[in-house]
Simulated assay, not measured.
Amino acid sequence: MHPVRELARLLLPVACPCGELDVRWCARCAALLAGPPVRVEHGAPRLDRLDGVRPVPVWALTPYTGPVRDVVVHWKDRGRADLDRLVAPSLRRAAAQLGPVLSAALRGAAVAVVPVPSTSAARRARSRDPVSVLARAVADGLHDAGVQARVVPALARRSSGRDQVGLGARARGRNLAGAVRMTRHGTRTLGQRSACILVDDVLTTGATLAAVERALEQDGHDVLGATVLAATPSPAAAPDPVARPPSALGEILVRT
């Protein structure tokens, strides 16, 4: 090992978020994000529209438990921007697997990749917007699959809404009521009607994605689905009968 690098590791030890030393991320944590995306909206009760239309399809790479939780927390809130090189390629691969279905459905049209907005307080605390990293990865993955995709940061959180961390399902819904709005840039860039894919880091109750979906639909746009890194398992949820690997993604756009 180079002497300077060895000294740096003594002063600033490198460790995986799970605790394994001398690696930025260990093979076990990397493997947790390497699998194919599966449907997870069944475990998010706040995605239920209560209007007879099926919830927006949401695809995740892994459950938000154990080491995955450690990775996401360190990546978002503990300054581990180096973990971009773990999470972004993982979501890019997943998006590439979703691409063929979107390509067939869009018939050559473009899709807007819309990151879920963070609060201004969260952005200041983190000095960056981690979800935008994921959105770029999703757009790149769709490009890899031949889909015309562009990142459009079309939405913003109103200042009245607080961060969702620590809130229960009902509190999340109340906190986000009217808290997501279209930006002028979003309205101008999306035009009159665009097909959109949402991107977030973690699916919990679905309240955030539901608020984003409403904001886009009220402006005349179509939300085709959402991709997230991980989803919180629902203890009351039965095993999902439609969760399946990307080789059978034909239902992604069937919501009625």
Rank of each mutant, 00 (worst) to 15 (best):
L33Y: 10
L33D: 14
A34W: 04
G35L: 08
G35F: 07
P36H: 13
P36T: 05
P37S: 09
P37N: 11
V38H: 06
R39N: 12
V40K: 06
V40M: 00
E41D: 15
E41R: 10
H42P: 08
G43I: 06
A44R: 08
P45H: 07
R46E: 13
R46I: 07
L47K: 09
L47Y: 03
D48H: 07
R49Y: 10
L50G: 15
D51P: 07
V53D: 04
V53A: 12
V53T: 15
R54T: 13
P55D: 04
P55R: 05
P57H: 12
V58A: 07
V58H: 00
V58P: 01
V58F: 00
A60P: 00
A60F: 04
L61S: 02
L61V: 10
P63V: 04
Y64S: 05
T65F: 12
G66V: 05
P67D: 11
P67V: 05
D70M: 01
V72D: 03
V72L: 07
V72F: 13
V73I: 14
V73D: 07
W75K: 09
W75V: 00
W75Q: 08
K76T: 02
K76D: 10
K76C: 02
D77Y: 12
D77T: 00
R78M: 03
R78D: 13
A81R: 09
A81W: 04
A81S: 15
L83M: 08
L83S: 08
D84E: 15
R85T: 08
A88D: 03
A88G: 15
S90G: 14
S90K: 03
L91F: 15
L91D: 02
R92K: 07
R92D: 05
R92L: 12
R93I: 05
R93L: 12
R93Q: 10
R93S: 08
A96K: 03
A96E: 13
A96L: 09
Q97L: 09
Q97M: 15
L98G: 04
P100F: 00
P100S: 01
S103E: 05
A105P: 04
A105I: 01
R107N: 13
R107P: 11
R107H: 15
G108L: 11
G108W: 11
A109S: 08
A109D: 15
A109N: 10
A110K: 06
A110P: 11
A112K: 01
V113A: 02
V113T: 12
V113Q: 10
V113S: 03
P115Y: 02
P115K: 04
V116T: 02
P117D: 04
S118R: 09
S120R: 11
S120I: 09
S120L: 14
S120V: 14
A122L: 01
R123S: 12
R124H: 09
R124V: 10
R124M: 04
A125H: 07
R126S: 10
S127V: 12
R128T: 08
R128H: 11
D129N: 15
P130T: 11
S132W: 10
V133I: 12
L134M: 06
L134I: 04
L134V: 08
R136K: 14
R136G: 03
R136Y: 10
A137V: 01
V138K: 03
G141F: 00
G141D: 03
L142F: 07
H143D: 15
